[in-house]
Design a protein around this nucleic acid. Structure first.
Length: 644
RNA sequence: GCUGGUGUAGCACAGUCGGUAGUGCAGCUGAUUCGUAAUCAGCAGGUCAUGUGUUCAAGUCACAUCACCAGCUCCA
């Protein structure tokens, strides 16, 4: 038989041979090799080859190699926990994007102190360099083993494995676990690791189930890689909008006002105003009609839209929602049913479609208390909302228009490269959560899929991520903790128009029901601000900076000239601030640096006599000595082009 | 909502065995007028998140509530 390696080498063998031996014989085995892919399937180095095979050796540089490495680290953690706390029940322990975790059912919560103990025990297991063995057995044998070990979750899992599927166990030393694998050759390879946090997690991710103890960890083949990763994490956390946004005075929260209700301070409010003006102006150019609709409505409206049935828990209700004899209001969680009234105002012709309605819309959602996060997840927010009411044949063009607008916005604010696309579909097994029939969902989803392909959107599918009325294209972004949120959403809705009795007279004089696109152009402003602060570490581009220029006289003597310069900048529409405090120059400069202001103009005798300014720029190379009017032109140009 | 953690001045933190609260920076008032990371002096800031309890005595101990943080679940 012939074994071909992806690196080009070949090895011929009469007898069955392990991947490890074959690679050694071919002279390409080295210490960084963790596992292998045989004919495209990941497997361990001990796998015995008995027919012609294509083999790729995996190291930590390969995604699959990383995954296997981390998965083995998870097993080492589980082994350590079983050694220290034998009554703990094992559940699952996969690799994640950055590391791994293990879920345990433990009587006592796992604290930081316990975590340190587990780490110490893990070090021992690595040092013992235990050989990791794969064992395949029948369902009955496996059940017997785990019943004997008193591991009920493993027993449950074994019973869930479909007939005919291979049941494999992995053994390292005294520890044994049910696991599909693959794994490393031995525990010794996991040279550097750290347990990062301990927390609760519902069994099988269902909040009706028991809460288990989850321990997260990271693992690397070398100490250097571990240190580099930890340093990177520390740096990322310095960009946390929830930290710098408060420190720099963009927003704050107040106990008495409540959770998820941030106060936008002058700087935060300014940035949001700038974003909002930009969005509204751009939408006007693209044929949108601006509306302004009420923030509350009677329960009757939400009953028509379906929100009352599907979203009552998420709404702030004024009055008793269940007392039908009295009037009851609710703060709006979405704009849709309000904005539809614009269309419903009179009889509509096909000639009026598409009708593009936009609104800077404040929404209220009664999120569960543990959900709030800085400006990213709040209970009141303002969104660049909009609905396009259209004839079915206009869907492709209008959807493309929305996508173009969203991409233009993201590109302009500099977040496009940080985003990914998710095609959010319904879950056919959870019909209670969704309106409409499977046929209607099929139709809407097929339409969207076609549009995504046409528009070359590189997307991932998300099952059970749709809105209750239709599928979505969600534009996703990660925060500094790696948590993903939706920034922008485009939704196709073939259901709600009918519920609201929306119709138009078509060219053949028949009444037709329109389609609706629900869309945002820049998402909600609070969240966008948060992600901008994180992207730029607080140093927003000039066009968005709350203060664009600080004017600093060298000493008090030149405060007059500095004041004139400031006035000239302000007259040109530049957000300038005069800093004539009686403090040492270096001290004042340092304060503005900490404030991340894009430009400082230092003026003294030379500048005053020449009518110039000395600009010190936040970014290297943008500074220098300018004629005042030249500096104004420079800033005006940067604002106009929305330079990053 | 669930698991764990946190809450002392605007911010960063001390506060020992339970004995009535400190430091630095920021702020204010003076003085100082200095060319790119911190001028000097003085002053003022706190119902120790809130409430209830234990105690002769609570920042410190107990319970409850609120808020903040991470994760789970949910979601823009």
């Amino acid at each position: 038989m012939k074994i071909r390696f992806s690196s080009g080498e070949e090895f011929l063998s009469e007898a069955p041979v392990s991947v490890y031996d074959a690679a050694s014989a071919a002279g390409i085995m080295h210490r960084d090799v963790l596992a292998a892919e045989v004919n495209g399937v990941p497997t361990e180095l001990s796998t015995v080859l008995s027919e012609d095979s294509e083999v790729k050796l995996l190291t930590f540089e390969d995604e699959e190699g990383k995954r296997i490495f981390r998965h083995t680290a998870a097993h080492i953690m589980a082994q350590a926990v079983k050694r220290l706390y034998p009554s703990t029940k094992q559940t699952i322990g996969p690799a994640t994007d950055n590391g791994f975790f293990q879920d345990f059912d433990s009587e006592v919560p796992i604290t930081n102190e316990i975590m340190r103990n587990i780490e110490a025990e893990m070090k021992k297991i690595v040092k013992e360099n235990l050989r990791i063995e794969r064992i395949v057995m029948s369902r009955e044998e496996a059940l017997e083993i785990f019943k004997k070990l008193d591991e009920p979750y493993k027993v449950e899992r074994i019973n869930e494995i479909p007939d005919g599927e291979c049941i494999s166990l992995y053994r390292q030393g005294e520890y044994i676990d049910l696991c599909a694998g693959p794994h490393l050759f031995s525990t010794g390879a996991v040279k550097a690791f750290a347990l990062t946090q301990c927390t609760g997690a519902y069994y099988k991710g269902d909040q009706n189930n028991k809460m288990l103890q989850r321990v997260y960890g990271i693992a690397f083949p070398s100490k250097e890689q571990l240190n580099a990763y930890q340093e990177e994490q520390r740096e990322a956390l310095k960009r946390d909008h929830n930290k710098i946004g408060r420190e720099l005075g963009y927003f704050t929260t107040v106990d008495e006002i409540g959770q998820g209700l941030p106060i936008l301070m002058p700087k935060g409010a300014r940035v949001i105003q700038l974003l909002q003006r930009f969005v509204e102006d751009e939408e006007q150019k693209r044929g949108y009609l601006l509306t302004k609709t009420p923030l509350i409505a009677k329960r009757d409206l939400y009953k028509i839209s379906g929100h009352w049935d599907h979203y009552l828990d998420g709404m702030f209700v004024i009055g008793d929602p269940h007392d039908e004899s009295k009037e009851c209001f609710a703060l709006r969680p979405m704009t849709c049913p309000f904005q539809y009234q614009v269309f419903l105002n009179k009889k509509r012709s096909y000639r009026e479609l598409p009708m593009r309605l936009a609104e800077t819309s404040t929404l209220f959602r009664n999120e569960d208390s543990g959900e709030m996060h800085g400006l990213i997840r709040v209970r009141q927010f303002t969104i660049s909302e909009g609905h396009i009411i259209l004839r079915p044949e206009q869907l492709a063009e209008e959807f493309k228009g929305c996508l173009d607008l969203a991409r233009y916005m993201l590109r302009t604010i500099g977040l496009e490269e940080n985003c990914t696309y998710r095609f959010s579909k319904w879950d056919p097994s959870r019909t209670d959560k969704y309106e409409g029939t499977p046929e209607q969902w099929e139709e809407a989803q097929n339409a969207m899929e076609k549009l995504l392909i046409e528009n070359k959107v590189d997307y991932k599918v998300g099952i059970d991520e749709a809105a209750f009325y239709g599928p979505k294209l969600d534009i996703q972004i990660k925060n500094v903790f790696g948590k993903e949120d939706t920034l922008i959403t485009l939704q196709i809705d073939m259901l709600l128009a009918k519920k609201f009795g929306m119709e138009y007279t078509d060219s053949d004089n028949t009444m037709k029901t329109p389609y609706i696109i629900h869309r945002t152009s820049m998402g909600c402003y609070e969240r966008t601000l948060a992600l901008l602060l994180e992207k730029y570490a607080g140093a927003l581009p000039v066009w968005l900076a709350p203060t664009q220029v600080a004017v600093i006289p060298v000493v008090g003597e030149f405060a007059g000239y500095a004041s004139k310069v400031t006035d000239a900048l302000k007259a040109a529409g530049i957000r300038a601030e005069l800093d004539d405090r009686n403090e040492k120059l270096g001290y004042r400069i340092r304060e503005w640096q900490l404030d991340k202001v894009p430009y400082m103009l230092v003026v003294g005798a030379d500048e005053q006599s020449a009518g110039t300014v000395t600009a010190r720029a936040r970014t290297e190379g943008d500074g220098g000595v300018f004629k005042l009017e030249d500096f104004i032109s420079k800033i005006t140009e940067e604002v106009k082009t929305k330079k990053h």
